[in-house]
């Protein structure tokens, strides 16, 4: 087990497109354990992607179970994830372990359906929404060399969201 170094902007390697995983072996699972340890060592990250530590394979970890009142599937290791369906959109604030000291508003799909494999190669399917769906979309962007800063929208975009007209009650 080891905490790995996280690549940060403007490191060009963050722009690289990652390859699909083909070998679901003990080495992969050891790497996943290191990736998780790296996620937990940082500032309260709900996800991390392999290319953030310089391994350009399609592996992400997402775990939003620590956030109060957020629907979630617990701790997820997603290998070769694919979004098969998405609907709705929502603006939310994001930051990134690879972009220190900056947060911005990003539009993401509200609900997604997802297919992936676990670290043993077994097929996984999920339907998820809200904060968890946002986290998966953020991490999957890393696999394609994209960062949330590529998607930041004007703060004004938020102003005319439908939510403005909902009265009271907890949101998100």
């Amino acid at each position: 087990m080891a905490v790995l170094d996280i690549l940060t902007l403007p490191d060009e390697r963050l722009r690289q497109v990652s390859q699909s995983v083909t070998r679901f072996d003990a080495e992969l699972r050891a790497f996943v354990a290191d990736l998780e340890e790296t996620r937990l060592a940082g500032p309260a990250a709900v996800g991390i992607a392999a290319p953030q530590v310089g391994r350009f394979e399609r592996i992400v970890i997402v775990d939003v179970s620590g956030k109060k009142g957020v629907a979630n599937h617990g701790h997820l290791v997603l290998v070769n994830p694919e979004i098969t369906h998405w609907e709705g959109f929502e603006v939310g604030r994001e930051g990134c372990l690879s972009v220190p000291d900056f947060t911005g508003n990003v539009i993401r799909a509200t609900r997604i359906r997802l297919a992936a494999r676990d670290p043993h190669g077994a097929e996984l399917q999920f339907e998820m929404e809200g904060f968890e769906a946002r986290a998966v979309q953020h991490e999957m962007d890393h696999l394609d060399g994209l960062l949330f800063v590529d998607r930041v929208v004007s703060r004004r975009t938020d102003l005319f969201q439908r939510k403005v007209y909902q009265k009271g009650g907890p949101t998100r």
């Binding site: 940082g42 500032p43 309260a44 990250a45 709900v46 996800g47 991390i48 992607a49 997402v62 956030k67 957020v70 939310g92 604030r93 994001e94 930051g95 990134c96 372990l97 947060t103 904060f131 946002r134 986290a135 953020h138 991490e139 939510k163 403005v164 007209y165 909902q166 009265k167 009271g168 907890p170 949101t171 998100r172």
Partner: peptide, 29 residues
């Protein structure tokens, strides 16, 4: 808390305005 802030602005709704207080959950990943 969000609830405490909702309390703080609760009286204003009566004056014909809608005030919605919500948490901003910044996602770090």
């Amino acid at each position: 808390t969000v609830e405490a802030l909702q309390q703080a602005v609760a009286g204003l709704g009566a004056e014909g305005i809608t005030v919605d207080v919500s948490a901003v959950e910044t996602l770090i990943g």
